[in-house]
């Protein structure tokens, strides 16, 4: 295999790992703290992408507006996530898994049709990829935007690590995910904690959506495609571990990027084979707890 091909696939693997990581870490956080499976996580991703599309449509397709969208849209999805947590999701904490699934599926349906109503069936694109220019490394040319995405994901990963390990809020999150009853008994305001966790996770999903839109555009199918990919990452990495999500995202990004070279039509075969292998050897995922 030529050096250039390997280099290109490596970078695109890392870029797709970014989106997987942003999605899977949010899913993992919500599951760890709130104990609900946020099936509608992909819907926030899709909303993020469509909102970024709208921002650039309404204002202008320029670098400035893209940065603006990158700042505002995650805030908007976080706000929506917090709002939905307060009026809807919260009422289903502690219910059995089957009952929790109903509002989630309802949200997916409603957000999907809402997006179709607002943005229509044809996919929207935000053509800013060219505006970022290109970067050449060792005779290889990459879109500079790829490195923006990688940088953003590194900032987020470092920020997440800092917030979870160093801040008071992070301590409360870890306490709640380890033993919810005990942390409640110690006087932690769980209601507020859960809302903030939900907001952070849906904000990350929105951020992933904005970052993805210059590369893959915004379309109505992206909600479930993305959340299913994030599920695969969570199954491989193990639920409840941010580090696990990150490593699994990189692993799956790599398998996907190189699988596409071997079987262009059925590249996901390799990802599923990897998942099957993990399930046979470690059913709780590579970094999962029992």
């Amino acid at each position: 295999m030529a050096f250039s091909v390997i280099g290109l696939q490596l970078v695109s693997a890392l870029v797709s790992a970014t989106f997987l990581f942003l999605m899977a870490s949010g899913l993992s956080l919500i599951f760890g703290v709130c104990r609900v499976l946020n099936l509608a996580h992909g819907s926030f991703f899709m909303l993020g992408a469509f909102l970024a599309y709208s921002v650039t449509q309404v204002v202008a397709t320029s670098l400035g507006t893209f940065w603006l969208a990158l700042l505002l849209v995650p805030l908007a999805t976080a706000l929506l996530g917090a709002l939905l947590e307060i009026v809807l999701i919260r009422r289903f904490y502690g219910a059995n898994l089957l009952v929790q699934l109903m509002p989630m599926v309802a949200l997916i349906y409603i957000i999907s049709d809402f997006s179709r109503f607002v943005w229509g069936v044809s996919p929207g694109s935000v053509p800013v990829l060219g505006l970022f220019g290109t970067v050449s490394i060792l005779e290889l040319t990459f879109p500079a935007y790829y490195f923006v995405v990688l940088l953003a994901s590194m900032v987020v990963a470092a920020g997440l690590w800092f917030v979870i390990t160093k801040t008071r809020w992070g301590i409360l999150v870890r306490a709640a995910s380890q033993d919810r009853e005990m942390s409640a008994a110690c006087g932690v305001n769980q209601t507020r904690l859960f809302t903030t966790v939900y907001a952070l996770a849906t904000g990350l999903a929105g951020l992933a959506g904005v970052l993805a839109v210059p590369i893959s555009g915004a379309s109505l199918e992206m909600d479930m495609t993305t959340v299913v990919n994030a599920f695969v990452v969570v199954v491989v990495g193990g639920m409840g571990s941010v580090l696990g999500s990150m490593l699994a995202a990189i692993l799956i990004g790599l398998v996907n990027a190189f699988g596409i070279l071997i079987l262009p039509q059925f590249e996901m075969t390799f990802v599923y084979a990897l998942m099957a292998l993990v399930l046979i050897t470690r059913p709780t995922g590579l970094f999962g707890r029992e």
Binding site: L88, F92, V99, M102, P103, V105, A106, L107, I108, Y109, I110, S112, D113, F114, F117
Partner: peptide
């Protein structure tokens, strides 16, 4: 789908 979502929420 929007309608179905509302029905599901109602029943939930």
């Amino acid at each position: 789908m929007f309608f179905l979502g509302v029905v599901v929420l109602f029943i939930a």
